[in-house]
Write a protein that binds this DNA or RNA. Structure first.
Lengths: 230, 230
DNA sequence: ACGATTTTCCGTACGTCGTACGGAAGGAGT
DNA sequence: ACTCCTTCCGTACGACGTACGGAAAATCGT
């Protein structure tokens, strides 16, 4: 039976010999590597190289690649500034919180995807969750309504950030591959003829990401507020 | 210069020789394989084997693995039933539409992730988008508000479906790995002591996925409705 | 009818990946 | 000094995406 490794559990137990690596160091290196190379660019070999360690050394600290992703995700979530000025009303505070979250996800475009595909149980994710819940409790929610409200906010910011970063990256590399882009565009235009509403109401080129994000956020917050009287 | 492959463009042009494969056949096989093996389990080799073809034969029809994902995603989106009874009010119609979407995403748990990480430009995704837009135009929205409203709904259903399927899959395999689960739980409980709001207001075991989904959906729809007067 | 052309099919090969395994090396405790 | 536990990591295996180029087949021009 192999030594059990913690996987997805966050503390580190006793350590009878002083180690060169640590889960924290690995987490930080993973974040840095993900920022530069993206999700597809993170490999155990590259990660180890960046830490001047042998590849297999990582496995003393980490259960596998999935564990690295868990670690990196929680590490990035830690960048969200959680403290809010005393006495700030809940709606304003939540707005700040969500704008912050989007900022962090813009710095780490790989984050929304990872958050959507794993249970976020790291300490920083839990802390963030605590803040969201307590702000909405202050607003007057509890029980399933509370859970649902937290969900809508979380899914919105994750979904928006994911969309934004895929869009931005397509815009970037299409500067080089303008040809293929032209064909795709032409194809879309052809489709548009059979989709009149879409054609009339959407512009593809201008993209006011900031304004658009705030608009959607207002919708969700309005919806939460609308349910308070019930 | 290599023969250009369409990538992400959807029609197929002239065909001077009758082919055994086709983009449609590949798309269907990819969906079936993804359903069984998940995103990580889809490989070009396995996909080809399922079609009784050599691996490299796929590349006559498909630009690469990314293209296969695009194809599979649009193919799955096709399962969403788009027609709505005549005269049904917009809110009810949208609800139907979103419940449908969630159902499809439950049948294809890999779908929400793929949708979040790529621009959905396939014919079925565009058709779905057209329906959403026209329903919200009927509701009285236009311009950036319209775009934002479509966004909130889309992100909500994708985010919820992604959460639901990761949760469900964890619940499944934890039947086998109950030990590790117990440790995770114990860890969570320890964290809960420092997160009082979270501790008081969340239950982990019971999970009324259907009801919870509807609650969140009502929030978003309420929010859209609240913005109509402005 | 038949060669030329075009298109489909796919075997081989290369570089990369995650990680199982087992050994080496280095304190800590006795 | 000896044991034991931990850290470190070289090697190796099977699987992956796909570039390349050749074989075979269908179509077309004549």
């Amino acid at each position: 039976m192999p030594r059990p490794r913690p996987s997805t559990i966050w503390f580190s137990p006793e350590r009878p010999r002083k180690p060169r690596l640590s889960r924290e160091r690995i987490a930080r290196a993973a974040v840095a590597l993900l920022d530069v190379e993206g999700v597809a660019g993170l490999s155990m070999r590259r990660l180890a190289a960046r830490l001047d360690a042998g590849t297999m050394s990582l496995y003393e600290y980490v259960a596998g690649k999935e564990d690295v992703f868990d670690l990196a995700a929680d590490e990035a979530v830690a960048e969200i500034d959680l403290d809010i000025p005393d006495g700030m009303p809940w709606r304003e505070a939540l707005t700040r919180q969500l704008v912050q979250s989007r900022d962090v996800m813009r710095r780490h475009p790989w984050l929304p995807t990872l958050m959507a595909t794993r249970p976020m149980l790291g300490p920083h994710a839990l802390a963030r969750s605590e803040v969201f819940h307590s702000l909405l409790v202050e607003a007057g929610l509890e029980g399933p309504r509370l859970t649902a409200a937290v969900g809508t906010l979380t899914y919105y910011v994750q979904g928006y950030a994911a969309m934004e970063s895929t869009w931005r990256s397509r815009m970037r590399d299409s500067a080089a591959e303008a040809e293929l882009r032209r064909r795709a565009r032409e194809h879309l235009d052809r489709q548009r003829e059979s989709h009149p509403t879409l054609a009339r109401h959407t512009r593809l080129d201008d993209a006011d990401f900031d304004g658009s994000f705030m608009l959607g956020l207002e919708i969700v917050l309005d919806g939460i507020e609308a349910g308070l009287g019930t």
